[in-house]
Design a protein around this nucleic acid. Structure first.
Lengths: 199, 199
DNA sequence: CACCGAAGTTGCAGGATCTGCAAGTTCCGC
DNA sequence: GCGGAACTTGCAGATCCTGCAACTTCGGTG
């Protein structure tokens, strides 16, 4: 089942590079760290670094392109009886719980990303990929064409907005808030159509 | 009113650089164009290029950082009687009309950006800045703290989602669709809370 | 109108990023 | 074992981007 030794090593190296990049940048700032530093920390040659990540920035963010497909696949796997919003909401809650599990990884990532606009852009690109894949799956589910119906693309984009907002508020709370709860709150507001003033 | 000759020249140079970057990249692709090419096309030295844009990518996207504040300012200027959603919707419609006015600039921009994920990330960063500024203004309007109330941040993010989706659908239509109408459609869906299936 | 400070342009040197290429080394299946 | 595939590595080189120091141009002032 688990792939050969080769695969394991690759995964390990990838994680080592990401961990090194994240930690070093957290300590010294993005400009205080070179690719050579990261490679040295992970015990590979500088040239090998680029076999794993096309860019220093990508190593810091550290999210596979294959990660982009996970969201869409998870939504596809939801029971067909659910409405698109219900399906997306359920999946996002799962992901939020997953992210909150490791008390180090995502908090550190978010702090670092927040401190460097360039990295925020990179992270947005990853989200964008995920949203594009999700759009296709939602179009399947609703049986419409993605270019005729606005719903798939819009829901995919709004889902990203909810998640980004939740992550930002999580960060702002010093990671004391409950991430899934923040996601829930976001979906409540959205599905209520942004009530004027519930005052 | 209009600033001195100096300001005019700066604006002209900036526009020339952006236009050159956009056109060259549209023709040859992002990797087929160097900063030297762009500078030459705009009749300035390569070194001067970096007095205007911190990055080649930024020159291609060509949006000021000061552009980021315009959205927020426009919302601040809306009558206080409007709900946040109404105010944001009105401003976004204005911007959509503005973007659709020049039949060349935004279409070319969007095509180029769509063809190069790196540029999409850059554009996302600009949107992100605008959203952050908007969050602050919305928090003012609702009289809440942006970190206690989810609405300002979420509405700012969702607004971005609506606009991005509209732009994407505009692009997909080959720019035959009506951009303001696409924005309207997006807001209708959002304020309806994503109705299950209006079938 | 002559002059001075501020603002803008330019060239140069240099560090860092990233890519192709051509070895070497390690793993997997037969 | 052994042959091919996969991975690592070094090297050369193009490009990006930055600091610095000169030079040129603009805008105001007496």
């Amino acid at each position: 089942m688990t792939a050969g030794l080769r695969e394991q090593k690759k995964d390990a190296t990838r994680r080592a590079l990401h961990a090194a990049a994240l930690q070093l940048v957290a300590d010294r700032g993005l400009d205080g760290v070179t690719v050579d530093d990261i490679a040295a920390q992970a015990d590979v040659s500088p040239r090998t670094f680029f076999n794993y990540f096309p860019t220093k920035d990508d190593a810091v963010v550290g999210l596979d392109p294959r990660h982009s497909g996970r969201l869409a696949e998870a939504v596809r796997a939801r029971p067909g009886a659910e409405t698109p919003v219900q399906a997306v909401r359920a999946v996002l809650l799962d992901q939020a719980r997953e992210m909150a599990r490791d008390p180090q990884l995502w908090p550190l990532r978010l702090q670092v990303v927040d401190a460097h606009p360039v990295l925020a852009a990179r992270l947005s690109a990853v989200f964008g990929d995920a949203e594009r894949a999700l759009t296709a799956v939602l179009a399947e589910r609703t049986g419409t064409r993605a270019d005729a119906d606005a719903l798939p693309g819009l829901l995919a984009a709004v889902q990203g907005a909810v998640m980004r907002t939740a992550l930002h508020r999580w960060l702002a709370s010093g990671f004391t808030a409950d991430l899934p709860a923040l996601v829930d709150e976001g979906f409540d507001l959205v599905t209520a159509g942004f009530p004027a003033t519930p005052a």
